[in-house]
Design a protein around this nucleic acid. Sequence first.
DNA 1: AGGCCCGTGTAAAGCTTCGGTAAAGAAAAT
DNA 2: ATTTTCTTTACCGAAGCTTTACACGGGCCT
Lengths: 228, 228
Amino acid sequence: MHNRVLLIEDDDELRELLARYLTGQGFSVREAANGRDGLALALGQDCDIAVLDIMLPDINGLEVLRELRGKTHLPVVLLTARGDETDRIVGFEVGADDYIPKPCNPRELVARLQALLRRIAWDHKTEVDASRIYGDLRVEPGQRRIFQNDQPLDLTATEYEVLQVLLSRAGSVVRKTDLMQWALGRRLEAHDRTLDMHISNLRKKLGNDDPPRIETVRGLGYSYRVPV
Amino acid sequence: MHNRVLLIEDDDELRELLARYLTGQGFSVREAANGRDGLALALGQDCDIAVLDIMLPDINGLEVLRELRGKTHLPVVLLTARGDETDRIVGFEVGADDYIPKPCNPRELVARLQALLRRIAWDHKTEVDASRIYGDLRVEPGQRRIFQNDQPLDLTATEYEVLQVLLSRAGSVVRKTDLMQWALGRRLEAHDRTLDMHISNLRKKLGNDDPPRIETVRGLGYSYRVPV
DNA sequence: AGGCCCGTGTAAAGCTTCGGTAAAGAAAAT
DNA sequence: ATTTTCTTTACCGAAGCTTTACACGGGCCT
């Protein structure tokens, strides 16, 4: 639940289909349409697992993977054309953790992502557990705690999720419907004020600064003000 | 290198073919032609990874896997009939790490085995049998005992498992469902309070300190407070 | 400008789910 | 058979999620 997937796939239609499906399954998805962007995002520490198409317009997927492996152990699932055995084998050799042939079944993709994440959880301590810092806040995913100037904030489970999502996208606007899906795991229905309440409570716990750390973007959602 | 693979497959021809190929690739192979033998070998601690056919003459492969998961985290690659999607998804849910459709390409099998082993090698650093110390507690896996200030705690088998899992992840939150699976060897069903009871008893035996050594993370699980 | 609608902030109340633990029953070990 | 351990049942209190209600304010229309 609440894992962050990076989707590197140039086919817009497929990418958006998968993104929608993964989001519906509780993943927080970020997307890249080419190798360069994908690589940048993957190195940005803001995802737990990557799905990487081999056929990309700029850099070859395998090259992206090789590049990535020089710097991180981020788990990677390759998307390959069905039957292209060579790519597969090379992919594994370069350090992929899994591959799925295209056209792929989304349910299977989810199952594989979860199997991989579970295996990592068992074996312990990878990037998934690494702490992330945003200004005076520090997120400790292992403890599921967030510290402000090294003082743990007393957050409820939901508040932790909401804030963690906002932080992982610090500086950009998170739409309410997405925030709902990622942090609460369900659809935003009309007249549902739940999210507003959690935001309100979070602001209180973060200290009601001016300007507020969590900015309201009317009609859209919220955004954590990027720390200097 | 020289990893030990357990091959559980009833088709003699296929099994021997794979065995020969894997051996040629530098694996040390042991074989089982049915679920019962396979299970016994898998629990014998003498292998690093297992390849498990779903269709077996005696016990269903998924059943073998479920049984196995109660006791060990041994990585398992499932062999399934091509296209049988249900088996796959169920397989992942029961805790498989990967699957390959039959008829399978041996090169791909090797690639997948190696990807899995590599992932584990990265993540896995701790030795299994060494005693570990957490503050005033000392875990002796050999004796299956835990000492507090060099006094052995009088724990039951289950309590030992629960505490040992919590300790091995000290400082991180362990989800109830995982704790159940790892320590009790079965799935957490709704309204099952067994785990809560063991925690309650453990707290009593550890001395009901304040703040408690075993913290409750509401809605998620428990976490052993990391000693200073 | 005035009025209206809609989205938002937040206090307070309602309600559900979750967790602690005692006690009883079932199962396993001795 | 007896003891130990594990599981189930039941009850309670508390945590925290959601709903309700009302207030505020911006944007838009006339």
